[in-house]
Design a protein around this nucleic acid. Sequence first.
DNA 1: AAATTCACG
DNA 2: GACGTACGTGAATTTC
Length: 933
Amino acid sequence: MAFGKGCHLHLIDGSAYIFRAFHALPPLTRKSDGLPIGAVSGFCNMLQRYIDGNNGSDAPTHVAVIFDKGSHTFRNDLYDLYKANREAMPEDLRPQIPLTREATRAFNIACEEIEGFEADDIMATLARQAREAGGRVTILSSDKDLMQLVGDGVDMLDPMKNKRIDREGVIEKFGVPPERVVDVQALAGDSVDNVPGAPGIGIKTAALLINEFGSLEDLLDRAEEVPQPKRRQTLIEMREQIELSKKLVQLDDRMALPFSLDDLEVRPPEPEKLMAFLTQMEFRTLTRRIAESLGIEAPAIPDTTPEGANPDTDAPPPPPVAPEAYECVRDMVALERWIAQARDRGWVAFDTETTGLNEMTCDLVGVSLCVEAGTACYVPLAHRAPGADDLFGSSELLEGQIPMDRALAALKPLLEDPAVLKIGQNMKYDAKVMARYGIRIAPIDDTMLMSYAMNAGLHGHGMDALSERYLSHTTIPIKDMIGSGKAQITFDRVGIEEATKYAAEDADVTLRLWQSFKPQLHRVQVTRVYEGLERPLVPVLTEMEMAGIKVDRNVLSRMSGAFAQKMAQLEEEIHQLAGEAFNVGSPKQLGEILFDKMGIEGGKKGKTGAYATGADILEDLATEHELPRRVLDWRQISKLKSTYTDALQDHINPDTGRVHTSYLIAGANTGRLASNDPNLQNIPVRSEEGRRIREAFVADEGKVLVSLDYSQIELRILAHMADIPALKEAFREGQDIHAMTASEMFNVPLDQMTPDIRRQAKAINFGVIYGISGFGLARNLRIPRAEAQGFIDRYFERFPGIRQYMDDTVAFAKEHKRVETMFGRRIHTPEIGAKGPRAGFAQRAAINAPIQGTAADIIRRAMIRMPAAIAGLPARMLLQVHDELLFEVDKAAAEDLIGIARDVMEGAAEPVVKLDVPLIVDAGQGANWAEAH
DNA sequence: AAATTCACG
DNA sequence: GACGTACGTGAATTTC
């Protein structure tokens, strides 16, 4: 039936339905795989209720559900801050968006959306068309932005309150009739959509003014006549902003639509299609109820699926990975098609190929995208002919590649689109590479971090291993592309066809892993860990790593020279003492000199049969002999020179003059970060000589380095977790914890404490954190083993809760094959049931992990909150060293920074965890890291 | 590539 | 009665 006189059009505001459904309902997940499904369920319920309510005389002849699509509309072109303060879509809602489209179609209701337009504009256009054709319109929404459409033959219906809004209702709400609503909105502005309006004027004042002057235009033209001086001034000065606001709130009812009113005719339900969708969603009650109302038998829904099953129980299994099938994207038309597909889905797996492993120095060679298992492409951007170098080591780009700038310009809106989730494996790498090309990828998911949150301690989290383990698929080795060793080439020299298979496979595998992991996160109950402690760290670390820290090459190079001299001198003395020249750096040769030639008592070690010559052994020998002392000195300097003063210089980035480390988020089993390339978490500090290396880490001109570190954080956590009243009390009183321990253990009053007794207690305190043993403590303190064991026994007697904690933790580990931090991070302990020496090892690791891991979680929380907290200061967070954060800040703002950052760190456990002991942060500042620490 | 050593928390 | 032995990392060097 053609739309015309007597017809009645219903327009359903789909996006409003979804958000209502999402926020009104408790989170609900699909039983078989944990897919969040609450909003879809609520959405279906609302649609069903809508259909049930349509039996009256007022039933529609035409109906459509209208959705928003894309985040960029013509309003963003008018005003780039339009809807800028809108919060990101909740993670659990995102995957449900496409499902609501499916649901609408399953109900056999027309479902319309147009890229780059808001649903409101489509509804405005349809409403106008319907009126002009002589029909009536009802808009099912409560959105006040739509009230401007109400009028002769058009009204609104709030589906939740079942309240009809007509002309009178609009006047009640806005104080003006519908045709003046935009004028009021233009003046009042809208904080939700970030429409500026006129400052100081709200809806009430706006309505007053519009009623008095007749229209916005008249008001602005005759603003001089407004009696209130402040108001008058605002209207005159802000005229442009007000006019812009009107353009933002004015709906476009003249859109060109690719469909007509006739296409929206009400269609009878198709029970099979609807039932298929509802059962796939596993809506038991809803399926039964709708089946009843349709007068058919409700299909059975399988109860549940086995662990590790494919998430889409009703969907066919994904196709096997087939690298030959991947598309190579060589022109803009094809690229735009892929981008559109990604937008349609709301997610895309993304991967970059580069010329190296260092994100700060490598060049982008190509990117790959995957929108569905098996449907992936590679976009080559900078491949070159193999070997055909010119004098400067470069060659012409190969034909058939989209120019880099054009491709990136097309990809940027997608990669930055808040409505499209970008899925990666180790996304920090890709985020850093793309950031150097001016693209800030967001929002993201990361399969490496998902694996880490679920399976830390069980296996590694690299893509090849994950693919093997969870997809039973062996990925193409990178060696097949670039070779290895001396003949290794960079990825830009790999043939484009070969590269397509390799690169697109990575994106394909990443997407498949994501589809498998995403529902598992819920099932395993680590969603909070992943979303709260892993994923948010990616942008924070990206910023820190790209900021880098300034290192003074001259300081290092001067020290290097001095070290070389000292080493040469020591080497000569060592050779003389040995009576022959040998390589002091060779433990094997040193062992032979010491134990064979010089005949010192000592033993072989390990299956290699080599003598052990570690520092502790040489330390013992040093009391009797001179040579070992010199070797120890030589080794210390050699270490400082090779690892620090020399190697560090090679890490100074020529472009920035700074050193950019890279943090591994999923490196350490306990939740700690690890730093590499270079490791800036092990810069010397314990020895006076080594400490001076920190003088080379400097603040930029006009700035200082600020260091804040948690005091005794692991002992505090132990005191809380093991619930030791004496320790908790001591921390609350701000006492010297090691002196207190010594006093308790050895019955020495605090005022008679000696440094030596305190030192022993300190060693015991640390030993407890590591899972103490008599042997280990004896070796550490260099005392007889029996005496060490005596200390431990006494410690457990004085603090019986410690033993209890250790026993409980090991028992928990044995039962669950894992332990947990206070924030729910899981650390697996597969070796806990082992026999022999490995048993003790696994038990100590299990005892230590919750303590070390909880401390790691706390500083992660501080780091995640830090950027927002210090946003107003001229400061940057540069480094994390487990319990320390290092900042660079303008001199004048150093104290402000210390105050704010300290508050963030000391309060980082809250509100999730309330510790019985305070967290205390010490701070320092200076021109270099040695001074700041 | 493995083993050894040593820097850090 | 013997086994080994403090927790977590990364990097440079030598040796196989």
